[in-house]
């Protein structure tokens, strides 16, 4: 990746907050294996149920990431909760989509555990709605790949999602607005100095955010529906987040 001296320091600071991917991967893998070993050999989990568990564990790592982040630490827990309630599914989708960008294969998904999942067999297992969501994710990943999005830009996008000034009833609204502005400015500066020939990269990147939000809303609707029909494993962070936002 490009290493120019003129990179805005804030972008590097945001990148430093990113968790170690391999650490997250092995932690989630170990958790799922331990859970599986506690379950009888006969009780094999469905693909959907396994996906829910992966999403749930990824959410834990997202909360850990947020807690350790510059800016976020300065907020009171009440505001932290409001921000995370608002964007958890967007952060999950971005995490998934950017993993596919790095994976760079259209025929398979790279899961948070490092496992690869063949997409040709997905249709029969997952049903029409989930397959459609996955497909939309692949389209978004394709767009980001075309844009040649890099890790630093994704670090900025995560902050833009987290520090959403449209979240209601924040105690420290002004602070959230100022972080949003600072990160926007840093991302703009970063794209201009790192990709000087690619003048609209910033706006192209920012235009992906509403697409990401639309996809995450659809994914939430789907999860809600599955939850109401009793198919989502209970007592987890995923369901708590779903409740908090929809209640």
């Amino acid at each position: 990746s490009p290493q120019l001296p003129s990179q805005p320091p804030l972008v590097l600071e945001l990148l430093r907050c990113d968790p170690d991917e391999m650490q997250v991967q092995s932690k989630i893998m170990a958790f799922l294996q331990q859970e599986q070993s506690g379950r009888g050999r006969q009780e094999k989990l469905s693909t959907f149920s396994l996906m829910c568990r992966m999403a749930d564990q990824t959410l834990f790592s997202i909360v850990e990431w947020a807690r350790s982040c510059i800016f976020f630490k300065e907020l009171k827990v009440g505001d932290q909760m409001k921000l995370l309630h608002n964007c958890w599914s967007e952060l999950l989708v971005l995490d998934h989509v950017f993993r596919q960008v790095q994976h760079g294969k259209e025929s398979s998904l790279l899961l948070v555990t490092g496992q690869e999942m063949d997409l040709s067999s997905m249709g029969s297992q997952a049903g029409v709605t989930l397959s459609g969501l996955v497909q939309r994710g692949q389209v978004l990943a394709g767009r980001l790949l075309t844009l040649q999005v890099d890790r630093r830009e994704v670090a900025c996008l995560k902050f833009l999602l987290l520090f959403n000034p449209n979240v209601k009833l924040l105690e420290n609204q002004a602070f959230v607005e100022s972080v949003q502005e600072q990160v926007n400015g840093a991302l703009l500066e970063y794209t201009l100095c790192t990709y000087p020939l690619y003048l609209d990269k910033f706006s192209q990147l920012v235009m992906r955010l509403p697409e990401l939000r639309a996809l995450s809303t659809q994914a939430e609707d789907y999860l809600c529906y599955k939850h109401l029909s009793g198919e989502v494993p209970c007592n987890n962070l995923l369901i708590e987040m779903l409740h908090a936002k929809r209640a």
Partner: peptide, 18 residues
């Protein structure tokens, strides 16, 4: 009425007591 998200609150609150 919003349900309190106890698990999230716990995750955000932990280690922050002292």
């Amino acid at each position: 009425k919003k349900k309190d998200n106890a698990l999230l609150r716990y995750l955000l609150d932990k280690d922050d007591n002292t």
